[in-house]
């Protein structure tokens, strides 16, 4: 009988502790981190936004979130370096992060890869091996980076579209390359938005 009677009491303790924890862990803890972030680390806390190259203009996006570089018709703009294929919404939709989740034998994925390969080779005719990151969609659909090989392969087309010296563009890619973290973590990479912003510096 004692055991049966103590269920309501136990539920009472459970309810009171859950309310207590909700205040502490659900309200105070996030508020503390919010305060620290907004006061001490406002730039990363608010999304590492970067501004347009023209002085006085607002943010053009986050350096951590990839974006599309399309012309008015919605096609990839040859004057910009292009990011990886994306399956977030219609491509780089910040409100709908997603990978393709297509399996290694899925015919849809195999067809998509063939299509991407053809488009890449058409845009960059000198390429012998298309870099893998240009053929495979990222996990988030918001990958801000491309591989160094991918950036270098795109350099001639970008140079042609902007009537710039290809060697200058290649030098810029090297300058914008981030190595592995600490020298051994992750992969070398080029942030596409930062690279494209740096491009406009060359135009002047």
């Amino acid at each position: 009988m004692a055991a049966i009677r103590s269920w309501p009491r136990t539920l009472g303790v459970a309810t009171r502790s859950m309310i207590l924890l909700t205040l502490l862990l659900g309200v105070l803890f996030p508020a503390l981190i919010l305060g620290i972030g907004q006061l001490a680390l406002p730039a990363p806390a608010n999304g590492s936004m970067i501004n347009a190259p023209q002085p006085g203009s607002g943010p053009v996006g986050s350096s951590l979130i990839g974006q599309t570089f399309n012309d008015a018709a919605g096609n990839p703009d040859p004057a910009f370096f292009q990011p990886r294929p994306s399956t977030a919404g219609d491509g780089y939709d910040g409100a709908a992060s997603s990978g393709s989740n297509l399996g290694p034998e899925n015919p849809k994925l195999v067809a998509a890869i063939a299509e991407r390969k053809a488009a890449y080779l058409a845009a960059h005719p000198g390429t012998t091996v298309v870099p893998p990151d240009a053929l495979a969609a990222s996990g988030s659909g918001l990958d801000p980076d491309i591989s160094v090989a991918n950036a270098l392969a795109q350099a001639p087309a970008v140079a042609a579209a902007r009537s710039l010296d290809p060697e200058k563009i290649q030098a810029l890619v090297k300058e914008q390359t981030t190595g592995r973290d600490l020298g051994f973590l992750g992969e070398p990479r080029v942030n596409v938005l930062k690279l494209n912003i740096a491009l406009s510096g060359l135009d002047n």
């Binding site: 919010l34 990363p44 590492s48 607002g58 951590l64 979130i65 910040g94 494209n196």
Partner: peptide
Amino acid sequence: GVIQNLNGFTDVTTLSGGTQSVP
């Protein structure tokens, strides 16, 4: 670089003139 804010979605005009919602 992990965010902590209550900004909702921020709509930006991207470098090539498109729009994007940054969460």
